[in-house]
Amino acid sequence: MNDFFLATNRSVRVNDIEVRQIQIKDFDTWAMHAESLKNFIKDQNHSDEILTGLFKAHGVQVISTMACVTDLNNESLVELAADEQGFKDLLKAVLLVNQTYFKYEKPKHTAKKQAIESTWFDSFQYLISAGHRHEDIMNMTYGAFDQYLKSAQKDHKNKLQYLSSVIRSAHHANTKEFKKFFEGLKE
């Protein structure tokens, strides 16, 4: 899905069933079911064979994950599973619409462990310091949250590079050159 799909919280319809993006405010419920799907799929495609294996291995989690992003309850989804191809089409849509979550990233091994574990509050604070509001973050889709977080990190790195250049210029410049450089920043 493209950036505008994520940012505008769009959904898709499959046979008159709306498939939505998961929102951050519902993420705790979603993740407890969807994590096993993510780990099963990993880097595999969403072929019918993979989806059949996924449903056989994690049927309850598949149903519960789908219920989080459709208007169907668990019982309706179990009934829909009788139509195997229709059910797989709906499951493919759930995986596609929420592909940011299901994109499997191999854990990064670091030489030294972080002294302080990052939490969701750290991510929220990072976005808040970039100008977002808590209420807005909670209503973001997971895909938009992920992209805004990456964008804020990129902006932060760019600002650090810029500040490093300014510090280096100030350190190596004579008074006249630095004053000229500083005045140029005001324009």
Rank of each mutant, 00 (worst) to 15 (best):
H132I: 00
H58Q: 12
S169E: 12
A31R: 11
I17G: 01
Q44V: 01
Q147C: 04
N174F: 02
L90F: 12
F55T: 12
N174Y: 09
A34K: 05
L37E: 09
V94F: 03
M32N: 10
A57P: 00
G53I: 02
F121C: 01
G184H: 12
Q153G: 06
T110G: 01
K157D: 05
K112H: 11
Y104N: 00
Y104L: 02
A93M: 05
D89S: 11
Q61K: 14
T65C: 08
K108S: 03
V97Q: 03
V97W: 08
V19R: 07
F4M: 13
I167C: 08
V166F: 09
H109G: 06
S129A: 09
A81H: 06
V97G: 11
V69Y: 06
K157L: 06
Q125L: 05
L6K: 14
Y104R: 03
F102C: 03
N139L: 07
L163R: 09
N39W: 02
S151F: 03
K180I: 14
H132G: 00
L51A: 05
L96D: 13
A34I: 07
M32Y: 07
I116S: 04
A34T: 06
K42C: 08
K176T: 15
S123T: 06
T65M: 09
Q44E: 11
S123G: 10
S76C: 10
G131N: 02
A130F: 03
S123Y: 14
I167H: 10
M1D: 04
K157Y: 03
E183G: 03
A173N: 14
M1T: 10
M66D: 05
Y148R: 09
V60F: 12
T65Q: 10
H156L: 13
F178Y: 15
I63W: 07
K176M: 15
K186Y: 10
K179S: 14
D48H: 08
D3C: 02
K157P: 00
C68F: 02
F178W: 15
E75R: 15
E183A: 12
G86V: 02
K112W: 02
F124W: 00
S129M: 03
A7L: 13
